[in-house]
């Protein structure tokens, strides 16, 4: 193996794509769903590693919300990402989780700027099977969360993508999600197909120019999701 293969670059100019996975680990996810999710996270790492650009550019963090909001994985490269084995219990503090994810993204962008790293629009990818237990339509947390998500999307601060897993309250989720990007409903437990699509989407972003609009494949076409009418 030559030196070229052995050395790493200290301060690469690779543009970064900050991605926060926001995963529901509340009690209702227990059993088959959490098992599928764990498996899919591992597979996500393997598939993304195969893409030369995505492996350098995706900057991944994982937040879970089950009982409390936990930072399971702070921002790291796909190579350094250690897929967690999540377990499910407790309520669904979705509001707190979204606010924390949005804060993390802002902070990460500030760091990029400080270090002169270009970046793509960050992703906030939410997967939930329930309804929030720490907020309800009209209360102050709710209003704060909805305002933050909608403004974040319309001001292009981040791309918010929500996935509803059975038996999630899609109606409530649709009010939180930006109007331009309604939540997709996962067909059965097609977590593997969904993360495959997610990996491909991240690869697509990674091969684009910073600031370029990219077309993401529809979950319907990708075969894992549907949209409620």
């Amino acid at each position: 193996m030559g030196l070229v293969d052995q050395v790493e670059i200290g301060n690469p100019t690779q543009p970064h794509c900050a991605t926060v996975l926001l995963l529901d680990t509340s009690g209702s996810m227990d059993g088959e769903k959490i098992a599928h999710l764990n498996q899919a996270l591992s597979q996500f790492k393997d598939e993304t590693l195969k893409d030369d650009l995505a492996r350098k550019r995706v900057d991944l963090a994982v937040l879970t919300f089950g009982g409390s909001v936990q930072l399971v994985q702070d921002f790291c490269s796909i190579e350094d990402f250690e897929p967690p084995t999540l377990s499910a219990s407790g309520g669904t503090p979705l509001g707190e989780a979204i606010l924390k994810a949005a804060d993390m993204i802002e902070e990460r962008k500030r760091k990029y700027k400080q270090q002169g790293i270009d970046y793509y629009r960050p992703w906030l990818f939410l997967i939930t099977d329930g309804a929030p237990t720490d907020m309800g339509p009209g209360d102050s947390v709710w209003n704060q969360v909805v305002a933050r998500v909608h403004a974040g999307e319309s001001e292009k601060k981040f791309l918010f993508f929500a996935v509803a897993v059975e038996p999630a309250d899609t109606g409530t989720l649709a009010q939180i999600a930006p109007p331009s990007r309604p939540p997709a409903r996962l067909i059965g437990t097609k977590f593997a197909e969904m993360f495959s699509w997610f990996s491909k989407s991240q690869a697509k972003v990674s091969s684009s120019k910073v600031g370029e609009q990219i077309q993401i494949e529809s979950p319907v076409a990708a075969g894992w999701g549907e949209f409620s009418v």
Binding site: V7, I9, G10, N11, Q114
Partner: peptide, 10 residues
Amino acid sequence: QRAAFRKVED
């Protein structure tokens, strides 16, 4: 320099 250094703060 980009290869040889990490940036820590400034």
